[in-house]
Design a binder for these strands. Sequence first.
DNA 1: CGACTACTTGGCAGTGACTGCCAAACTGCT
DNA 2: AGCAGTTTGGCAGTCACTGCCAAGTAGTCG
Lengths: 202, 202
Amino acid sequence: MKQAPETATGTPATLWDRTRQMASQEILDTALRLFTEQGYDETTIAQIAREAGVSQRTLFRYFGAKEDLLGGDQDRFWQVLADTVGAQPADAGVWEALRAGVAAVLALHDSRAQALERFRLLHNTASLRAGWLEKRLRFQEGLLPLVEARMGVAAGRPDPRARAVIATVFACLDAASMTWVDNGGKGDLMDLYDECLAAVRG
Amino acid sequence: MKQAPETATGTPATLWDRTRQMASQEILDTALRLFTEQGYDETTIAQIAREAGVSQRTLFRYFGAKEDLLGGDQDRFWQVLADTVGAQPADAGVWEALRAGVAAVLALHDSRAQALERFRLLHNTASLRAGWLEKRLRFQEGLLPLVEARMGVAAGRPDPRARAVIATVFACLDAASMTWVDNGGKGDLMDLYDECLAAVRG
DNA sequence: CGACTACTTGGCAGTGACTGCCAAACTGCT
DNA sequence: AGCAGTTTGGCAGTCACTGCCAAGTAGTCG
């Protein structure tokens, strides 16, 4: 399992990489379909593997856990968010910088419908939500230095403020997306996010 | 498994209730001890059951899941928080009301040392944290009407603001308790909470 | 006191997610 | 073609958790 030397053309170089790519996509599509059709908890790994045409063992090699089958490549999301935040001008405030990052990630979704379906599953399935929150929290910790630098915190005494700001941003994103899902995907998620932040920050 | 008809004296009426109480406490103590000694993931249900002197089956009847073995009676925490918020004067703002609830819950811990140990396990164990966050999110939803009433939201169009406020409060509590743990339990948690909220709300 | 009921317990088998291990199949390079 | 490195599938095993059933124990009524 080496790095995939992605060429600039978008087509991976070797057959292996192409096969991996296809298998991965097939598994992801099958999983999302089954989750949507019969629910997350009611879908077993065995079933996904069978319908995707791979062994369970291979499925677990591609995706380390069942929850990773939803939400596609989350690492990419986090990467984009962190990069975007880092790329904001130095004189931009934390809130603006983070807002830009959130916007960049939301723009990453394939389609509005697919995004809605993902969020719906995420918010309605306890077991999924748990894992998702956990993963996100880990990312929040990773984001910490980036935000701390922007806030100019003293390195000596531990300062909770950066953590609080990051956590609040995600809290607002949660509130916004939950309301969005409850509302059947009507309106713009980013508007809801702004509304949440306004409610919090006065 | 009926309601325990707790008498005013604090001593449960029947032998059954007393036995249940003792078994429950024994399990909880054993679990916390083992978790602390060897870590959450490294401790199996079988081991806890063995050392607590009950069968696995019985253990699962008392506590539905492994994560419930930490944090004792969380339902009580939530109950206290909700009650306290509800008991705040009508003219108190949402933020003050929620702050009072948070303070009430934090005051519930047996000892500072035990609270620190619980938080430490919670923040350092991924699998635990996941379940905890999930449970909390469910509680947040339960708190929603209480907060909405206090904010005077219109019933018609779904409004994300109440959710955002609640989520932000917990986000700050998270940031505060994580920093508290990182700092070895020095200082007052409530002060850190206030600092977080100040950083967020300007 | 004895019987009858209600509740609790423990064991057992089973499910489902997930991991380590090993042999077989396959790709890429010479 | 032939070797080396990579991927795959199957198998057995671990662990959390559940349903089921038989046996034990507490409470109650005659």
